[in-house]
Simulated assay, not measured.
Amino acid sequence: MRHFDLTPLYRSTIGFDRIGSLLDTLNTFEGNTPSYPPYNIERVSENAYRISMAVAGFGEGDLDIEVKENTLAVRGEKTVEQENSTVLHRGIAARSFERRFQLADYVMVKGAALENGLLHIDLERELPEAMKPRTIEIATKTTEQPKVLDSQAAA
């Protein structure tokens, strides 16, 4: 895999440390990320997103969703139940998992819902007022004559 030196980026920019660390993280990607549970990421509207995860067999009490420093972590831990019957084939996975998603700046988690074995996590990008585009009016110079306050002649 190629290695990129991001030192020039750090020398000439201020406040973009997170982008450099994300690029470093992508650079160390080995391709052996877990594939369980499967998930979809949808763009619902211009500023709204939805993550849908297939978590069949997990209840609300078995799932934990946490947001910390622009990282969304979804954990599932299935409690082991003692059964009176012998399972001949176990095809429904009941293993624990943890999925992490990097969130962009100003992306907030709006809510989560568990429906028909799918965990839906709704996200929305909320730009602060200072970051939103605004129109600046252009002032024009008027051709008014200066007002004379006192009309006495200079001595």
Rank of each mutant, 00 (worst) to 15 (best):
R95W: 07
R95N: 13
E66V: 08
R75W: 00
F97Y: 13
E66I: 08
K68F: 08
F97K: 13
N84L: 11
T86S: 11
L118K: 10
R90Q: 15
E115R: 11
N84P: 01
L88N: 04
T86G: 04
F101C: 05
A73I: 13
E83P: 00
A113V: 10
Q82P: 05
Y106H: 15
L103T: 13
K68W: 06
G76N: 00
A112F: 04
L88S: 01
Y106W: 15
L103P: 10
R100T: 15
K78Y: 10
G91P: 00
D122P: 00
G117Y: 01
M108F: 11
L123G: 02
T86C: 05
V107K: 03
K78H: 14
G111A: 00
F97S: 13
R99C: 10
V80H: 14
H120L: 12
V107Q: 04
V107L: 11
E83Y: 05
G111M: 03
V109D: 00
F101M: 06
A94G: 15
D122F: 01
L72E: 07
E69T: 06
V74R: 01
V74F: 01
E83T: 13
F97G: 12
I121E: 02
S85R: 11
A104K: 10
Q102E: 14
E98Q: 08
E83R: 15
N70V: 06
V67C: 12
K110E: 02
G111P: 02
E81N: 09
R100N: 14
V109N: 05
R100Y: 09
R75V: 03
T86W: 09
T79R: 14
Q102R: 11
H89T: 07
I121K: 03
A73Q: 12
R99P: 09
V67P: 05
K78L: 12
A93H: 01
L88V: 08
Q102F: 14
E69V: 03
A73Y: 07
N70S: 06
V109L: 15
V80N: 12
L72C: 05
V74I: 12
I92Q: 11
K110C: 01
V87S: 07
A73P: 04
A93P: 02
K68Y: 09
E69F: 05
F97C: 14
V80E: 14
R75Y: 03
N84H: 13
L123D: 07
S96D: 15
E98C: 08
V74G: 03
A73T: 15
H120W: 06
L114P: 03
H120I: 02
